[in-house]
Design a protein around this nucleic acid. Sequence first.
DNA 1: TTCAGTTAGACAGATAAACTGTCTTAAATA
DNA 2: TATTTAAGACAGTTTATCTGTCTAACTGAA
Lengths: 153, 153
Amino acid sequence: MKSGSYPDRHRTLGALLRAPWRVLEGRVYGAMAERGFPEVRPAHGVVFRHIEADGSRVSDLADRAGMAKQSMAYLVSHLEEHGYLRVGPDPLDGRAKRVILTERGEAVLKAAHDLSRSIEAEWALAIGAGPMETLKRDLGRLWDYLEAEDHQS
Amino acid sequence: MKSGSYPDRHRTLGALLRAPWRVLEGRVYGAMAERGFPEVRPAHGVVFRHIEADGSRVSDLADRAGMAKQSMAYLVSHLEEHGYLRVGPDPLDGRAKRVILTERGEAVLKAAHDLSRSIEAEWALAIGAGPMETLKRDLGRLWDYLEAEDHQS
DNA sequence: TTCAGTTAGACAGATAAACTGTCTTAAATA
DNA sequence: TATTTAAGACAGTTTATCTGTCTAACTGAA
């Protein structure tokens, strides 16, 4: 069945990166509901990934996520409504608002990291601990290369 | 700037897979417009990836992409309108339609593969040809493992 | 061999996640 | 101080998914 449903010629680098990422994302966000965070959807990941420990402004989050302020505001307002974020005025800039994770939001971040680590461990058993280490190291080098010339997410 | 804007603790396996994939997808689909295929968007990738050389049915495409028939029909109709696909009756099943790539559609597939290969070559220069080979081999093993227990797209 | 159940796709409508454009207000600058 | 820039709000649009319902066609079992 392996190369029947998805021929090897389609196993491009993009496909090789996308396939496991989709599975991982699906498992992480699927498990969120079970862990008591049903309102957290994949799109909200950018907020959790880019928010700083002492809070961030919506514009900064948008910049770092590489998306429009309006789009970020939409995600932030959803998370605020459901208690994952607290939004207050920015003391340094009267126009801006400061967004910070609540305890519930911190718990989401922790859950996501835990889940990610346990899936990684499972996959390390499948392909070998050595290869998994090598994989991460080389992906890290690729990341450094890509970061050295613009690029966010 | 490297770990300033995106701290290392966020370099989870998911992030390591997602970051290069996003860049690759952006470059491939960005180049599509320049190559004369402006109507092809990232979401249409599932069609090109899963369609068979002698044509496929919408339901089969949907199944293999792991999405609803309606969603696939929406993507297919867009590509048909712009001349990337031809849709005809299925000779074996009066209910079904057969979807097949036109020459223009084949050209998209080729362009996507060419672009992917050239980006891969660029990245191989950045991280080394050996590591790139190892990376692909290990991602391939991960793919096999994931495929052995359900999973599509 | 007909008839019940299933499947393919169409149509309608909903939602999520992004976008652009415009507006107000505040900040920064010249 | 006057002008420009920046932050976020509000309105509307597009894209990409989903469910639900419907008809036509196929399939298998009595």
